[in-house]
């Protein structure tokens, strides 16, 4: 059993979860994820690692309450115990000196990008953070990014902060700021990452996305997390989750994400993240 050190809602529907898991804390790297179960009947669900404390042996994640399993997580209190916390899983993000790296993030990705941005900065890169949300009230951890990054840009659907619009506006924003990316990294909802793939293709900016398919074991045993990258089938849990955004078969990926849509009746409409909801619009049955 693993002790929950903290679980608090940081903005509507997004929670920070801190769990005591020294075995993960000691070896986790930027870009890794973990798999947990909320209780004995629970699903194994993957969450990216948003931070850690090697000495205290704790691991943090930011999760969005979207369905049954994340609803269970949202009920946890400090001191509670969960039966499964496995990791670190996935390949770590390739950290090198690229030059200027634009880190695009939204939703839970604001959390999962944090260790990546930190490591990229340490490696000597210039970091431009582009933080995207439906509205200002869904933003968090801004102070951290302001302190770390060379530039922080915002993009909100309702225009309450920064540019009004969504991820599609980002190239334009960057150009107007005179930013020439050597690499774009995107973390967050699938739709946001797909949009980044679409808009960075034309200017030819290399873009790496942190994919989030359905998973079970996270070790390469079941194959449910497979996706097509550059015409080849890859398992996101062991070959990824980072992939070249321009090589991914996005239509297939989006379809596979909806496999259990009917079974998971919990409506997403109320989840707060515009992109999360959009992904599921117009889906009637599986």
């Amino acid at each position: 059993m693993y002790k929950v050190v903290e679980r608090k809602m940081i903005v509507p529907n997004l929670h920070e979860l801190v769990v005591e898991a020294p075995h993960v804390a000691s070896s986790v790297q930027p870009g890794n994820f973990i798999i947990l179960r909320a209780d004995e009947n629970g699903e194994r669900i993957p969450l990216s690692v948003a931070d850690w404390d090697r000495e205290a042996g704790t691991v943090s994640s930011i999760f969005m309450q979207v369905g049954g399993s994340t609803a269970k997580l949202a009920q946890l209190h400090p001191g509670d115990e969960i039966p499964t916390f496995a990791g670190p899983l996935g390949r770590e993000t390739e950290i090198e000196k690229y030059g200027t790296v634009v880190c695009v993030m939204g939703c839970y990705g604001i959390g999962s990008m944090w260790p990546v941005a930190r490591a990229l900065k340490e490696a000597g890169n210039e970091i431009v953070a582009v933080i995207e949300a439906r509205s200002t009230f869904l933003l968090y951890w801004l102070d951290r990014y302001k302190e770390l990054c060379d530039k922080v840009l915002y993009c909100t659907r309702d225009g309450t902060l920064g540019r009004k619009g969504h991820a599609g506006e980002i190239p334009d924003m960057l150009r107007s700021q005179g930013v020439k990316p050597d690499l774009v990294m995107a973390h967050g909802c699938t739709f946001q990452m797909k949009r980044m793939a679409d808009v960075t293709r034309e200017p030819g900016w290399k873009t790496v996305v942190n994919m989030n398919p359905i998973m079970i074991d996270g070790t390469g045993m079941c194959g449910v997390c497979r996706l097509t990258v550059g015409g080849e089938t890859k398992f996101a849990c062991v070959d990824g989750p980072d992939f070249d955004a321009h090589e991914i078969d996005w239509d297939e990926f989006l379809a596979r994400r909806k496999t259990y849509f009917v079974e998971e009746t919990e409506p997403l409409r109320h989840s707060g993240c515009g992109e999360h909801a959009e992904e599921h619009q117009g889906v009637s049955s599986g």
Binding site: K72, I216, C222, G223, V224, R256, T259
Partner: peptide
């Protein structure tokens, strides 16, 4: 092979055996 509804036997059996999916929705794995 990557269409929805195509499973490896490992996925299919793991959902049912390890995750007790045959008791869904009493258990959470569909």
């Amino acid at each position: 092979e990557n269409l929805n509804g195509v499973y490896s036997a490992n996925e299919y059996l793991t959902r049912v055996n390890l995750m007790k999916g045959f008791r869904f929705p009493e258990t959470d794995t569909p």
